[in-house]
Nucleic acid binder design. Sequence first.
DNA 1: CCTACCGATCGGTAGG
DNA 2: CCTACCGATCGGTAGG
Lengths: 194, 194
Amino acid sequence: MGARHTRSAIVARGLDVASMEGLGGLTIGRLAHDLAISKSGLLGHFGSKQSLQLAVLDAAADVFRHEVWDRVADQPAGLPRLRATCEAWVSYLERRVFPGGCFFTAVTSEFDDRHGPVRDGVARLARRWNRSLRADAERAAADLPAGTDPDQLVYELSSLMLGLNYALQMWDDECAPERTRRAVHRLLGPPAAT
Amino acid sequence: MGARHTRSAIVARGLDVASMEGLGGLTIGRLAHDLAISKSGLLGHFGSKQSLQLAVLDAAADVFRHEVWDRVADQPAGLPRLRATCEAWVSYLERRVFPGGCFFTAVTSEFDDRHGPVRDGVARLARRWNRSLRADAERAAADLPAGTDPDQLVYELSSLMLGLNYALQMWDDECAPERTRRAVHRLLGPPAAT
DNA sequence: CCTACCGATCGGTAGG
DNA sequence: CCTACCGATCGGTAGG
């Protein structure tokens, strides 16, 4: 039960709270109460609320990486990996890995019109993810109908995932994952049989 | 400068603040300061913060109705109106009618996992909008390739608008409106020449 | 990790 | 519409 353990327990709890209430809804007092420690004891691990928010954001990125990125790393670059990525992405949302829906969607709509380290951190992660998608989309274009624009493809695929997150969070729409898969298949063709 | 005027000034200011910071970021003290009146003077118009939030939500619905709904009311039901609706929707986002992006997107991600009158109000408005889209999509299906599913169509169109809002708010991506139009045209065919 | 405290701000009320 | 106030909570600090 060292300081490391306490710190990671704080971050884990912060992850759940922030996915439901946003990073702004993370209050030191509430988190300290939930974990039955004092506010100053909690704050000692981070120094400031902003550092806590950045630690939670990092932890969320680790979860997303583990749930989506790592699962498709062994796929061949290009169309196969793009298809696998979309399926992993749908599955990540469908399994409700975060109780409040996609952590990054929630945090983005909270910080997209602000400045500062948190917004920068969110943007950096989103750019990294986008570049990765874009690289596979560019290779995939050769295997898709002529005139397929990689940026357009990434844009449409990402929009579908935003729509899925919305449908699951707002309506508990159990048809939405299947609808998303159908739309993805129209854009990329059906997934390869394994 | 009667009470009615003051009230509508409060709501108008609340609309701008809430589109950027969310309905939860609407604080009575801040709004009162912005309008140079006292907190209790402001609160007297509404009775509670929740009533203020509901008044602002209603005002946002009026704006959306005026900017999108009313502009396509004269179109023939079905495919023509669905096309016109999408174009008006893209234009509403492109013109950044609300400084913080689509008011309903912001408020939805804030309240989708809560309970209470505000969440209920948001859901009611979203359902109404969805039903309207769905009615035109159902008629439009006859004019679209065989096997077109109206629910699938509404789902994909709505997702594209979420994607557009994201791209505009997060990246100031000026290509996004055109990308959205291209995707809409792929789903609905090009807009009718006028 | 703790207690004890800081000034600021929250939503809201009393009384006018 | 106002002043004056309430208890609660915010992020954070001092000192141990």
